[in-house]
Nucleic acid binder design. Structure first.
Lengths: 221, 221
DNA sequence: CTCTAAAATCTGATATATCAGATATCAAAT
DNA sequence: ATTTGATATCTGATATATCAGATTTTAGAG
């Protein structure tokens, strides 16, 4: 409740969209759950208009399914939607790494080096919490250095989806070391201005993570 | 006017979404044009509620930009250059080809074969007009076979921006034959279920086209 | 004439009422 | 007891009214 109220500047529509998305991704609303417009509107103390707009957006993203005058339901296969989105992310972050390798300046390499060195420290300390933040910074730096606004926008639109996803990835200890090695590998390729190598390293890093989280989630069922 | 009324089964929301999208893509509403909710609602004889939902969807696709209580405007694609967008397109169509290679059924291969055979004929006839349509069908089939809704949406959002781009690509005769060879190569990789090969073939095909169009456009200036 | 501030106006955002399709309920017929 | 169909009810879809931020207009001071 508290964190939602921090966002005072946002419209009700966007606030309720974020709230619902988080609730669905964290499985507070389980697959198949009926999201009733009037009920939710009353619960959140808002009208159905912005709520409806939020539901439409979630529908387009595949998180809910609406049947006219029957109801809106949380999609039965959320993991599939998340996986679909992460395939797109792998492609977009891959090409971002390529462009970064082509365009990066020496000053920017220094910046990236600084982050990688910090990551090395926290990996040795097995500090998953700090690493989660640093990993975010690392990926953000790379797409910034790609200097392609459209790609940055698309990647950041995807980001909120896999907050929970990346958290799961780092909850396994062996993943910390492997993740760092892959990040270091991407880093080396970018520094060497090896566009093909950087793109491939980034793509296989993200796709391996997809498969890893998927399989470890399925095991826990 | 008449064709819109044929769709009686659809919701007003979807009908007005398509109507607006067509109008924007055909440049009846030019970039920068102010789409006023009340004005359009009155024009179409509907209320602002479904109209607003249609506008939100167009906003998410990037066709319009809304500033709260200032207005909704047809996007000016000046923000993101055609080149920027096409880097994203190459990555997304590449991963679509990969997924198609992984998931394609025998029946779907037959469908794709049919299109490729037609393309062969029109390439020999140097029929650029027909090839433009078939190329579109070909790419659309591949992304459909990828069975990833999110990626399909992203690619089609990009398409609505640069119809002119692919037209330019085929305006050079030597490009017809080279384009067909590349398409045939992608096709072979997908049929062989070679995911890596299909992705690489698609990516290099699109990126070569980007460079080609860019250089030939610069020459003509 | 210029500048400023208040008010009128324009616009999207939100709230509420109503419509209409889909489903569930239940009583009557067999 | 089962079936059927009328009806009550639930739900999203749509229409309309109102709110509030942003812009423009304009009246008044200098």
């Amino acid at each position: 409740m508290t964190d939602a109220n921090i966002i005072l500047t946002k419209s009700i529509r966007d606030a309720v969209y974020e709230k619902l998305k988080d609730a669905i991704l964290s499985e507070q609303y389980k697959p198949g759950h009926h999201l009733k417009e009037r009920e939710l509107a009353k619960l959140y103390g808002i009208s159905t208009t912005p709520l409806k707009e939020a539901l439409r957006r979630l529908e387009q993203e595949g998180l809910v399914t609406t049947s006219a005058r029957r109801g809106t339901f949380v999609s039965t296969d959320i993991m599939n939607s998340i996986e679909e989105i992460n395939w797109a992310r792998s492609a977009l972050e891959g090409v971002a790494a390529r462009l970064a390798a082509l365009k990066i300046s020496d000053a920017e390499i220094s910046q990236l080096t600084g982050v990688v060195e910090q990551m090395r420290v926290f990996t040795e300390q097995k500090n998953a919490e700090k690493l989660l933040i640093l990993n975010g910074d690392y990926h953000k730096l790379i797409r910034t250095f790609a200097k392609n606004n459209y790609i940055v926008q698309q990647i950041e639109a995807i980001h909120s989806f896999d907050r929970s996803f990346r958290q799961k990835a780092l909850s396994h200890e062996e993943e910390l070391e492997r993740g760092f090695q892959e990040h270091a590998n991407i880093y080396r390729n970018i520094c060497a201005r090896d566009a093909d190598g950087a793109e491939q390293a980034m793509i296989s890093h993200i796709r391996r993570t997809i498969v890893f989280v998927k399989s470890s989630t399925e095991q826990s069922l």
